[in-house]
Structures are given as C-alpha cells and as structure tokens.
Design a protein around this nucleic acid. Structure first.
Length: 769
DNA sequence: GTTGGTATCTGTGGA
DNA sequence: AGATACCAAC
C-alpha cells in the first residue's frame, strides 16, 4: 500500500480508492477535497491506467494547475499527460480538433463577454430596436442562459414560458436576436464562452463519424471538481461521455462508468451563470443503475470551531441541503470580530487598522490575510488605506490584463490576421489607429455584407463608396494582407511585434507621454514578452490545452485566462478579491466586508428565497475561507453613483449566533441605532468611536425617541432645524434642485466646524419653526 | 471624419 | 464617480 494513503482519514481513503463505478464525494469546506482528487488520480495511475486516459475538469485554471502540481509530486512527469483543465479550455481543445465536423475552422476565435456584447449591440441596432429597452446585459444573459440550458433559437421561439417572460419585460424580440447572434458568430468563425460547451454538446449529440466513441474510448476515468457549479450543458456533456452504446445504439449496461464528482451543495454560487444545484442533487438518480457510492467528507481541517459552527448555523437558514455535519478538528480558536463603520471610507480605515494590528500582534504575513467583498468596485477604499499604511496588496479580478484596451487592440490585430471573418476584431481595429474609416463607412460595409451575404472582410473592398473611403479601405486590407502572408514564415513573437509596429499601434502609444499612456505601452510590451516566452519555452507544459507553438494556440489559450491565473504565491501581498474568486482558497485571517442589505445579499437577489439562499451560500463560502481569524464589517452609509446611500446591516449578521462573536451582546442589539446607549456598548465594538465623539459627529445630540424628521422638501432657507447628531441649527441657504438640494446649515453646538453642507435627500432634519 | 464637450446611464458575480 | 452615448462645431 502506498504511503500517501496513510495521510488520509478513512472516508477520504475510500473516496480515493473506489475508482470503479460512479462516485459522489460531498466535501464540506476545508475537508481535504483537493487532496482526495489528486491522490485519487495518483491511485488510478498506480492501478495501471495511462495518464492520458484521465479527464479531470475544474472551473479555474488555478485549480487545474494546483491539482497537476500536486499529482506531479506523487507520480512525477506523467502528470503532464493528464487531461486536466477547465471545462472551457479542455472543450476548446477538443473543438479545435473536431471543428470541421460542425462547420467551424480550427482557427475559430473565442469571443469574450465584451465581443459578445458588442455583437449583440450591433444586432439590436440593425433591427431598429430601442437599446434602452433591449439592454445589452439583459439580452446577453437571456441568450447565455438559453444556451446553457440547451435551448436552441428555434426551441426558444416556441417556448411559451420564455416568450411570455420576454413579453413581460417588453422585449419580445429576444428570440430573434438570439437567432441572429448565433448566425453571426458562426459567420465570424467565433465561439463565445457558452459555445465552447454548447458546440461540444452539439458535436457529441449529432455524433458525426461516431466522434463520441473516440472520446469515450479515450477517457477511461472522469473527475469533476466543484460539481455543484456545473450547468445543464456540462452535466449533459459528461453524461454523453458515459453513455456507452454498441453499434446498434443499445445501451451497454455492463461497462463501468468511472465518474467521480466532487462538490458541496452548500457552496453552490454560480446559479447566475446557469449552474444548477440540481445536478449534484440528481447525480445519484442519474447514475443509480451503475451503482453510485457516496462519501461525505465532514471533518474540517481548515478553520477553528467558532468559524465552523457559525458557518453551520448560518447555512441552516437555507432550504434543500444534503444533510451533513461539518466539524472542526482545530479547537475553539478566536471568536469572530465585528467592525461597524459609519461610512465606507471609515470601513476601509478600520479594516486596514485591524490588518496592521494583526500583523503586529499575531505576526501574520501579508499573504495570509484577505479582504473579501461582494462586488469588485468595493476594493477602492481598502486600497487607499492599505497604500497609506504601506501594506502591500494585490487586487484580483476586475479588469484583467487581457481585458485592457491596449492589450485587446493588439490581440484584435492578431485575431484578424488568423481569422478574417472575426467581425468584432475587424470593427475594433479598422479605424484604430485612425485611418479615416469612420462610423458611417463601417455601417455601410456591415449593410453591404448583410445584403450580399458575405463577411465584412469580403465586402469592404467591393462595396460602392467614395474614392476617399475606398482608398482607406484598400490600404487597410493591403496592410492586413502583409500580416496574413507572414503567418507561415514568422514565429508568433516575430509576427506579433511586427504587427504592433506596422499597424501604428506602438507609434500611437509612444506619442502619449502621460503616465497612463506609458503604462499602456508597457502593457503592450508585456504582452509581446509573454508571446516571446511562449515561443521560446519549448517545454510543453500542458498537452491538453497548449498542444503546439502556433499563434493560434497561443490566442486560444489566453482567451480563457483570468487575472486569478497569474502566479502569485511567491510574493507577500494582502489579497483583495470578490467572494466568488475566493472559492477554493484559504487564509489565516479573512475580512468579509460590506455586510449590508442590498449589497450582501445583493439587491438583485433579495426578491426571492432562492436568490437570498444563493447569497447565503456565498457568505458561507466567504467565512469558511478563514483558518484562524474572521472579521466581518459593514458601513452605515456608502457612496454609490456619486451619492451617499444608507443601508441596514446584512440579515446574515443576525444569523450568526452571538456565542461565536467577540462581544457577548447579540448582533441584533448592536445593529440598532445605539449611540444613545451608555458608553460600554460602543466601546466593545471595534472602532474608534471615542475620537468621533469628541467631534460630536459620532453621537446623538437629540434623543431619537423625541426626534420626528420633517419631509425634506419642506425645508427652506431661514428655518431653524434640529439634526440628530449636530443639534439645533439655522438653514443659511439652499442650492440645487429636487433630489440634489443641499442646505448650508449653521449648527451652534458644533465647535470646530459649525457650518455644514447637508444633502437634504438623506438628511434627517426636524423643522423647529 | 474627427474632435471635444455635455447629457445620460449604470445597480453582481466570471470562464 | 466613472464610462459611454450623443451632438455640435471644425
């Protein structure tokens, strides 16, 4: 028996060694899931399977790489031949090989979200639909979810429920947009993210040349990580891979279905992108006839007791769960800390203060600390204060390197060089740098292409147009032809840097001497360096997703990279990221911030129980990232769209039993406006209210019980008013109109800065006379 | 066609 | 607040 099996507990070991037949591993947070997956693969190889017969699917490149690294440590270089990667990258690889069978070229482009939206925008415009009603994001998400649920445009058109929903939202033509969108993608030789799944399903379903059997024979063992986050397409593709039939189409019931899915229903957080928790719940039903074995990993090796129990308690508020009892093996540890702040800026400061304090007192390294938020835009205040305190940090997510404008511009040139039908790439660069091909010319090309049923690339030199425009178009095409003709004689790096220079991109950026402009030039150079690395490094790192050194292979791969995939372990930075990106990660100390109603849970989700349940699972994911210290924070007010908004603390805070919190007082009590209460309460809450009190700004001058705010529109210059915190004041004047009315008020009781500018929309003022 | 200004709109998550 | 859409003037 191999030594690595000794590192496992009983359930883990069974999950590792039960390699024949379907297996469902329900893995709570911190229960050694990755360890089970990697050892299972090592075990499978040890039992005689070839690495290339193993298909391991994850959601992020990071997870895939980590798995490979860890398998490599057990089985050596053989790990490189395992087909381990993200759904999207593995499927793209298969599609590249089989493209011709479904009418694509193997050089197909991958459209990212921006490309998709841009195409949808064009279609909405061409159909003369109102773009305010046909909001691109809404339309794209309808199309995406239709595709994720395997509903073709044709099926969409006759689906009464979908049509009714669209009529209700005043967008009856979504089905038509969907249909046109598919046609245009096809014509452009492009697949969007959903297509990478959808087209593979189509390939397996239509099964030309019995292509499915080839992959069924190849993949003897299939493993799927984060199964709770798979959508209908993904689970159906896996089902197809296991749907063994003989030449007459008769089901082969004898053959083992060696599928292992690992997941945690409590951590399902991707319903918005079509994931259905139903998949994990129905796994047993789907594969019952082949003898499903279920293993539950319930020991949490990551977090201390207060954290684990708080998480357990929290999740009981959800409906439909797989019963399990997660237990910590780590001892009770620290209680959870709560930070209450008046504003988002104060929250930023308070969190940064705590980070500095923890570093000093507990000697945590920066990389052992993370700030997790619901929305990426929340990162800014934390960045501000961390910078001020000289704490190194890294923000993940948001705009990734490959999404930066200048990087996308050069990539668009490369894309068009390889695939002239790529309409979004063409539109992006046809007049960038400026070459006198304006909007109206582009529109004409587009119309002509549609009318003659050709591509824009074909049309652009054929349509009747002014001599001036014609000249510009011909010389643009000539330039592109020079690039295209060099594809076979130059390597990817030579070609890319040649294009960067010849297109005028580099010159354009060189002329911009601002700091941002220089940054953009640096980014272009960084991209070129990346391509150089790719070309010169002759080691094949990943057989499955990077099969060769062509520019096409490079482009295919970077289309699926995100910021998260960059190597970051080497440096010592505090991590700032969304809760979604934090899934699968762990930190000694975690700050979950912005715990306010309408933010976390998101305003988008609070209308339905299912919506709130998903947010709760997200919060569950957030708090279970913490090993030793967990700090939760919220602000009473924060800026949104340049306006101050007030929100209640998150309902999730009330769902954590007070026993697990630093102060013995119940959260509910702490939440209530409590400044009128005795000193002791405020003092126990982490934060420097004392300082605030001295400035009067943190205390109430008026007893809230006796305070009855007047309607703000009634407040006029010259009036005497009462303010909750500042006391009595006189309105000197009012400027602005309607929602933007601002009063200048003189408060005699305020010593250091008695004259305040107060936004009437939010102010609570009581008119005295 | 290009430039530069002003009005309008945006409300999450990510491969 | 920040991005984008729109419009008038060159």
């Amino acid at each position: 028996m191999s030594s690595y099996l000794d590192e496992l507990n009983d359930v883990q070991r069974q999950a590792v060694t039960t390699i024949d037949g379907p297996v469902l591993v329900v893995a709570g947070p911190g229960s050694g899931k990755t360890r089970v997956l990697t050892y299972r693969i090592a075990y499978i190889i040890e039992q005689g399977a070839k690495p290339y017969q193993i298909l391991a699917l994850t959601f992020t490149n990071k997870a895939a790489r980590e798995m490979k690294d860890r398998i490599g440590k057990v089985v050596g270089d053989k790990a490189n031949n395992i087909w381990a990667g993200t759904f999207h990258s593995i499927f793209a690889r298969i599609l590249r090989v089989e493209a011709s069978k479904i009418g694509y070229d193997s050089n197909f482009t991958i459209y990212d979200t921006e490309d998709s939206k841009s195409l949808i925008k064009s279609i909405i415009k061409e159909m003369n639909l109102d773009s305010t009603v046909y909001n691109v994001n809404a339309v794209r998400s309808r199309i995406s979810s239709a595709k994720s649920n395997i509903i073709t445009p044709k099926a969409y058109k006759v689906d009464e429920e979908l049509r009714m929903q669209d009529r209700m939202s005043k967008r009856p033509y979504i089905a038509d947009i969907y249909e046109k969108y598919m046609v245009r993608c096809k014509k452009a030789g492009a697949m969007d993210f959903d297509d990478l799944l959808y087209q593979l399903y189509r390939l397996f379903y239509q099964n030309p040349d019995n292509v499915l059997a080839k992959y069924q024979e190849k993949f003897k063992y299939i493993l799927v990580d984060e199964y709770q986050d798979t959508n209908v397409l993904q689970s159906q593709i896996i089902k197809k891979l296991l749907d063994y039939r003989d030449e007459n189409g008769v089901l082969d019931k004898q053959r083992q279905r060696n599928i292992c899915v690992v997941g945690d229903d409590a951590q399902s957080i991707y319903a918005f992108r079509g994931a259905t928790i139903e998949n994990i719940l129905s796994f047993e039903r789907d594969y019952r006839q082949f003898g499903v074995e279920i293993f539950k990993l319930e020991l949490n090796y990551r977090s201390t007791e207060h954290i684990v129990q708080a998480a357990n308690e929290l999740i009981t508020h959800n409906d439909h769960q797989i019963q399990k009892s997660i237990q910590s093996i780590k001892g009770s540890g620290q209680k959870i800390r709560l930070i209450r702040a008046m504003t988002d800026a104060e929250e930023g400061k308070r969190v940064a203060d705590n980070i500095v304090e923890q570093k000093n007192r507990l000697h945590f390294r920066n990389k052992e600390i993370a700030i997790l938020y619901r929305t990426n835009s929340q990162s800014r205040v934390f960045e501000e204060y961390l910078r001020r305190y000289n704490v190194p940090y890294r923000v993940y997510g948001g705009l990734s390197f490959y999404q930066r404008k200048e990087v996308k511009d050069l990539i668009a040139y490369l894309r068009l060089t390889l695939n002239q039908n790529d309409e979004e790439a063409l539109r992006r660069i046809i007049n960038y740098p400026k070459r006198a091909i304006g909007k109206s010319t582009v529109d004409k090309i587009s119309e002509h292409a549609a009318a003659t049923n050709t591509t824009m690339w074909e049309s652009m030199t054929q349509l009747p147009i002014s001599a001036r425009a014609k000249n510009a178009l011909v010389s643009f095409k000539k330039m592109m032809m020079v690039f295209i003709n060099r594809v076979d004689t130059m390597n990817a790096y030579e070609l890319a840097s040649y294009i960067a220079r010849q297109s005028g991109l580099i010159d354009l950026l060189k002329r911009d001497t601002t700091v941002e402009g220089m940054g953009r030039l640096e980014n272009i150079n960084a991209l070129l360096d990346g391509i150089k690395d790719f070309v010169e490094n002759d080691e094949i790192i990943d057989e499955a997703t990077m099969p060769d050194k062509s520019l096409a292979s490079y482009l295919q791969n970077i289309a699926l990279l995100t910021d998260l995939d960059k190597d970051t372990n080497s440096d010592d930075y505090v991590t700032l990221m969304s809760v979604h990106s934090a899934k699968g990660l762990e930190f000694k100390s975690v700050f979950v911030v912005g715990l306010e109603e309408k933010l976390f849970p998101s305003f988008m989700s609070i209308e339905t129980k299912e919506g709130v349940d998903e947010e709760r699972r997200l919060f569950y994911v957030a708090i279970t990232r913490a090993e030793q210290m967990l700090t939760l924070s919220f602000a009473n007010s924060r800026y949104k769209f340049g306006q101050m908004r007030y929100e209640e603390p998150s309902r999730f805070l009330m769902e954590i039993p007070p026993a697990h919190l630093e102060s013995s007082q119940s959260i509910r009590k702490r939440m209530a406006p409590n400044m009128d209460e005795p000193e002791s309460r405020g003092a126990k809450i982490v934060g420097n209210f004392k300082k605030k009190r001295r400035n009067v700004t943190g205390n109430f001058a008026i007893d809230p019980k006796n305070f009855k705010p007047s309607i703000s529109s009634e407040i006029q210059a010259g009036m005497k008013v009462l303010h909750m915190r500042f006391g009595e004041g006189k309105v000197l004047n009012i400027d602005g109109a309607k929602d933007n009315r601002v009063a200048t008020i003189f408060f005699k009781a305020v010593e250091d800065d008695p004259q305040k500018r107060i936004m009437l929309k939010f102010a609570k003022l009581q008119i005295v006379q």
